[in-house]
Write a protein that binds this DNA or RNA. Structure first.
Lengths: 122, 122
DNA sequence: TGTTGACTTAAACCATAGTTCAAGTCGTAT
DNA sequence: ATACGACTTGAACTATGGTTTAAGTCAACA
C-alpha cells in the first residue's frame, strides 16, 4: 500500500499543508499514522477520508459538524443511521444554498444586461 | 414615496437590524437618509440598493468588493464599464462555486446511497 | 404625564477558519 | 560529513462578518 507524506497529500487535494495539520488538530483526521520520525503518513483509507472531509468543507459544513461525522465513523456501525440522517440533512442544506445562489445570480445577471445595454447604445 | 424604518427594511429582507447598521458602517449604504430624530429611513431606491447588496452577499462577494461596487455606483456613469466587468467576473466566480458544490455533492450522494443500502439489506 | 417600543451611538466582544512563526529534527544526495 | 528540503511542534496572529452591550433619545398611545 502506498503511503503519502503531508506534502503529497496536500498536493493531491490542492490545499496547503497547514490546513491538513489544522484539520488533524481539530479531530477531523483521527487514526492518522506516523512514521518512525514522527511524520504523518497517509494511507489510501486516510486519503479517502480526507476526500470526504473536503467534500463536506466545499459544501460549507462547519468544522464542528464534520468532526461529529468523523467521530461517528470511528464509533462504528451503530452510528450508520445517524450518519445517513446527517448526510441527508446536509444535502438539503446544500441544495437550498445552491438555490439561493442561483436566485441571487438573477439579480446580478439583470445588472449585467442593463450595463451592457447602456454601454452598447451609447 | 414610502419610506421604511430600519425594522421594516430588515423584516422585508429577513435580516437582523444590526446587520443593516453594520453594512452602513462599512459603507455599503451611502446616501442613506435620516428623519428629524436621526433614524434611518429607506426609500425605494435604498431598498433596491440593499437588495443588490444582499444578492452579492448571498453569492459570497466579500464586503470590501461590495463596497468598491457601491463606490462606483455613487461615482456615476464613468464607472459603468468597471461595474460591468466586475459583475461578469463575479458571475463566473459564482458559477465556479456552484460547480464545485455540485461536484462535492456527488461524494455526499455516494455516502447516502451506501448508508441506505447497508441499512436496508441488514 | 408617563410608560412603551423602536430607534440611536461607539466600543467591546464573538465565532470561524485558518496562517504564520520560531526553533528544532530527520533522511537523503553530494 | 554536511547541506538541503521536508517535515515536526505549540502558540501567536490574522481576516472576515457580524453580534452584543450600555446608555440614551424620541414619538405615540393610555
Amino acid at each position: 500500500m502506498k503511503y503519502r507524506s503531508i506534502g503529497e497529500a496536500a498536493a493531491a487535494l490542492d490545499i496547503p499543508d497547514s490546513t491538513i495539520r489544522y484539520y488533524e488538530k481539530m479531530g477531523l483526521l483521527p487514526l492518522l499514522e506516523r512514521d518512525k520520525a514522527g511524520r504523518r503518513i497517509f494511507s489510501d483509507d486516510q486519503m479517502a477520508l480526507l476526500g470526504t472531509v473536503m467534500c463536506l468543507k466545499n459544501t460549507h459544513m462547519p468544522i464542528s459538524d464534520i468532526k461529529q461525522y468523523v467521530d461517528w465513523i470511528v464509533e462504528g456501525e451503530s452510528t450508520l443511521e445517524r450518519r445517513l440522517e446527517m448526510m441527508n440533512r446536509h444535502k438539503q442544506a446544500v441544495l437550498d444554498e445552491i438555490a439561493l445562489m442561483t436566485e441571487s445570480l438573477k439579480g446580478i445577471d439583470y445588472k449585467i444586461e442593463r450595463y451592457a445595454r447602456q454601454l452598447g447604445k451609447k
